[in-house]
Design a protein around this nucleic acid. Structure first.
Lengths: 256, 256
DNA sequence: CAATATGTGGAACCTGGCTTCCACTTACGT
DNA sequence: ACGTAAGTGGAAGCCAGGTTCCACATATTG
């Protein structure tokens, strides 16, 4: 277990292009190569072409490694996989946080669109189930996702509006599903955090198992969430009624 | 010969008595925290009085810090809290693993007794619920518990018998609860791992919230586990049917 | 093609945790 | 009380990872 470096031999010392393997259900973000191709009008305009290229390679490498091994991978490992020197990585991204922020910006955007889609579903219960399942899948497919999500919301105050809007959208969806009589009335929007953390815990298992475990957990939970006669008979413990930013307060470093 | 007993008894007289903080519910197992003259390393047979005292202080400090901050706390921090030098800590416990093993031996023992109690319950469903709830509480109250539990089973092959016996006891309890018609028939004993990991994920939240979240998660899950008419209509994804040792294979280091 | 600002990689440095060494203390048997 | 071996703490060595420096390379522009 001390020799976790022995397995990090994947770098080829060849500066050829990284194979950009994507996870199956990942629709590529449309602007992913804006820095890299010929017409960057506004953003990253001052970057030299090769620098922009390296920057993209760093992001790709970081995305891979975060997904595989979580957000605590050594920066040097990211640099190595990207085929660049440590200085280059650090010059582009002064600290790990900024790299995480950029890598997961697309993920968070994806989250938003999934939520918006679900909220737009004419059948609120179906939308609810879809959203829960999709979110769960994203967590499992990317090992760094849960950590990044929590740390982003806990540390970066720049996403406050997004968070508030998302929470309100979800609360609205919950309300509609409840009014439709499909979601149990004592479900609370703050239970989303509960689901998120619980499912995130499954990510401790190796990926292949985690996927199955997650699907089964979700099935159990969704069945419990669904309204039925026995609901009223068995009251739940009260919900936390707290949002992400209250449970994980900003401006502090909870993780060791 | 009875001379073996004499040795054990002698060693038991000296140490202990530190006992600064105890888990609330372990008044039942009086022994089990002595020097543990087992095979591993410690020539525990003849520790000088002050040495035994320090050893106990180290264990107490480690117990506290593991519970507060997880099993990754620096060894030096443990030594500091115990009020001993780093060398002393390291002399008694050559590596972190041996310290963890000793600290959590009592926890695991407690687990066993909780399971045995539950299995002895004449009402298998009640026993089932009790066990799930107790296990969940232990996880939440001690931040290092989940990690230690997984790493112990994943790395130490010395507890195989215990694990196998526990798994079979639990499977038997499940079976009885199902035969009694209270537990849904498609619950699988391997779902225990699912519950364990999911609840462990809640430990990411600060303790005060984690407790509430856990109780609510358990309530949701137990309601889903309880047999009722709708069960048959909605089949679950298939269970992993895998034990802890298969999902977390021994002799390897899954954690970063 | 030359001039130059922009980028680059590796080496050096820093920090924090783990592990070992060693001169000094102290409990214990007599 | 005393000799001695067991025990101790702090300091020093080691290692992995993060961060900075700097001599060298090369896109870009005219």
């Amino acid at each position: 277990m001390h020799s976790d470096f022995a397995e990090v031999r994947e770098e080829m010392t060849e500066p050829t292009q990284i194979d950009t393997q994507r996870s199956p259900a990942d629709s590529d973000s449309p602007d992913s190569d804006s820095v890299y191709s010929g017409s960057p009008n506004s953003t990253a305009s001052k970057l030299r072409a090769d620098a922009a290229h390296n920057r993209a390679r760093i992001l790709a490498a970081a995305r891979e490694l975060f997904a595989e091994r979580g957000i605590d991978v050594p920066m040097t490992a990211i640099a190595r996989r990207a085929g660049v020197g440590a200085a280059t990585l650090f010059r582009r991204f002064p600290d790990r946080r900024s790299l995480i922020a950029e890598v997961f910006a697309t993920q968070i955007g994806h989250c938003e669109s999934v939520l918006d889609e679900a909220a737009a579903d004419p059948d609120p219960w179906h939308g609810f189930c879809t959203f829960i399942a999709d979110l769960g899948r994203m967590q499992i497919e990317d090992r760094g996702f849960t950590e990044a999500f929590l740390s982003t919301f806990a540390e970066d105050s720049g996403v406050d509006e997004k968070r508030i809007r998302a929470e309100s959208t979800f609360a609205n969806l919950v309300d509609r599903a409840q009014k439709a009589g499909r979601l149990r009335s004592d479900f609370d929007p703050s239970d989303l955090l509960l689901i998120f953390l619980a499912n995130g815990g499954l990510g401790e298992a190796p990926p292949e198992h985690a996927h199955d475990l997650s699907r089964r957990l979700m099935a159990y939970l969704l069945q419990s969430f669904e309204a039925n006669g026995s609901t009223t008979a068995r009251p739940l413990p009260r919900p936390s009624r707290m949002g992400l930013h209250e449970v994980f307060p900003p401006a502090s470093a909870p993780e060791a």
